[in-house]
Design a protein around this nucleic acid. Structure first.
Lengths: 198, 198, 198, 198
DNA sequence: GATGAATGAGTTTTCATTCAT
DNA sequence: CATGAATGAAAACTCATTCAT
């Protein structure tokens, strides 16, 4: 009886084995040869499981983001106040630690690829993830309202909060020495003056 | 004695002649050979006036943006209410007309290049332009306050308005069928509830 | 399963097929395109077997020199007297035949490349080959002493003999109509007055 | 009355002003633009005084070598014993000081150019200079014989001394970490055993 | 005599993808 | 199922030299 390999499983296994590789060399410098070597299979085999290079990069990035999200939601769970939970969303763009900067630059590279191609799959993936994060934010705000930390009006600011987040991301990426932290703190304090129950 | 040319003028003239070319083929596909042909000069001559390919692309984009700004400021001057003036800032990201979409996609490609290289000059240029636009926005808001259209508190929202703008730009670029208009209107109406003198 | 090729063999086969090409066009004018065409493969395939252009040129030159050495050692074996064996070493720089001049000019071009780059591999290769030839010369002299053709003191002249050889090479290469033969004969006769057992 | 410029004088003046430039950037990287700038004239003017790039490089190198020779003959004059005078000839190839290494590498680059082109003028220049140095060496040896430092037989070794010198030059240039000093000392001691009057 | 603007040929190397085995 | 050998298009940049002024 031959070993039955589930195509999807192997696809994922290949991508999984290349998560550190992508971090190391970056999207643009990643070659199929490297991927094949890291996964311990032949170059041709890659094409049994992936349409093309974009496809595999996409899969690897997915895993990256999933990993990131796991950490992210753990952090949020450990956090009590609504304000701090919101801050968790912004750590990614605020934190200047080497570790986070690496992730941030990885995401920058990813965005560069998204913006230069016109890959529908990328756009859809981004849409879904943004929706997902938006929902998370909404839950947190709603919970804050329920816990009497926030005024009911707070729910009207969920969207703009997420858009503001995107704005900080783009500014940190495209301008010199942008101080996202300062901007965030101004904004969040301003906002909480309006929505917080003191 | 040889013909003496004004280097700066010729530099600009070359760039100017390639503004439509850049629009047509995009940044990534633009070749020096094309530029030289369009400008009606030899390839080598390009390098008498520009350091390298980045340098010439940068110059062409500058002209693009200058052109855009001229239109933009004309629109603002023709506009009366502060709210409408603010809306002018957002036309770029909101408007779905073919004309504007072309510009928007051009800017998208530019951003893609900025994010993938680490060109200090690009980052600095962006910083300066963002500062400049921020100042414009501030003037408009201040004027609105002076004209008793807005409450003094409005001045505290200038920064976040610009960041919000960036956020919309990134969302329109990186997600599928993003409705920047809706987001903007929600936001601006929400905001004006807080800062408008009715 | 794909065709498995012996990388080393194919590498050598490619280089081998280009030995006449290198002779024909010279090092500086040799292009990868020519090499690929001559080897009957694609340009890209070259790079499956060689690091870069230097690498392939180096390999071709190796074959050249190996070929030359084979002839050279055959000649020495066919020769009886020590004096004649020594002369064999100098044929390369003395002989004005068209055939040898072609080789000599090839070596000249090779040296030109060695002197203009700072390629460690080249320098080391030269060192090794010089050592090797020095050892050969030493064997010949030692044998001459053993055969009572030469005085024991002859062994003290091995180094200078090789250096003298280099000197003739450089002189033939860098000056006009240099008569290496005359210089060699003067030298060898002078020397044999000192070291020969008559 | 217009300023009469002697063509040859200006030619020399231009070359003279570029002596340090050549040292700085080397032969291969030297551009006509640099030469024109250093000489304070236009690029086109260069061609009023020189045939082509080779011509001007040649002229600059001439001056270099003249300068070197001046130092060299001063050193020889200050030296007493014949053995030391001979050693002066070999300082160039033996000395590992930074200063001399710079000169040596300059000469290496020059030789590389000589070997890669087939410029008759270069070859002739080299022939003449080698003749000239040979004559100098002969004078020194003859003088040594006259001063009863050397046996009359010494005159038979003048040629080989010069060829040996060339050999050391080529070895230092084309092999790794060559110890020219050791080779020279062995040789000169060996030689003096034969030709010195003790 | 002087100038400097204009020129354009020429070559290495990478790497996603295919397909014969 | 798996493989890896083979492919070939594609583009920036330099710089000696000329010649119109």
């Amino acid at each position: 009886m031959p070993k039955i390999v589930n195509k999807d499983e192997k696809r994922r296994a290949i991508a999984l084995s290349c998560v550190p590789l992508l971090e190391e060399v970056g999207i643009k410098k990643l070659t199929i040869a490297q991927v094949a070597k890291k996964a311990g299979i032949g170059k041709g085999t890659i094409y049994e499981y992936f349409e093309n290079k974009d496809d595999i990069i996409f899969e690897i990035i997915n895993i990256h983001i999933e990993n990131h999200d796991v950490e992210f939601f753990n952090k949020i769970k450990e956090t009590n106040s609504t304000k701090e939970k919101i801050a968790c969303f912004f750590y990614f763009v605020i934190d200047k630690s080497e570790e986070n900067t690496k992730h941030f630059n990885g995401y920058k590279e990813y965005l560069s690829v998204v913006l230069s191609n016109d890959n529908e799959a990328y756009l859809e993936f981004n849409s879904n993830r943004d929706c997902f994060l938006l929902d998370e934010m909404r839950s947190i705000i709603d919970e804050g309202i329920k816990k009497k930390e926030l005024l009911p009006i707070a729910s009207k600011f969920v969207d703009s909060l997420m858009i503001f987040h995107k704005g900080l991301v783009l500014l940190r990426m495209s301008t010199k020495d942008y101080d996202a932290k300062e901007s965030f703190e101004d904004y969040i304090n301003n906002l909480f003056d309006l929505i917080e129950i003191k």
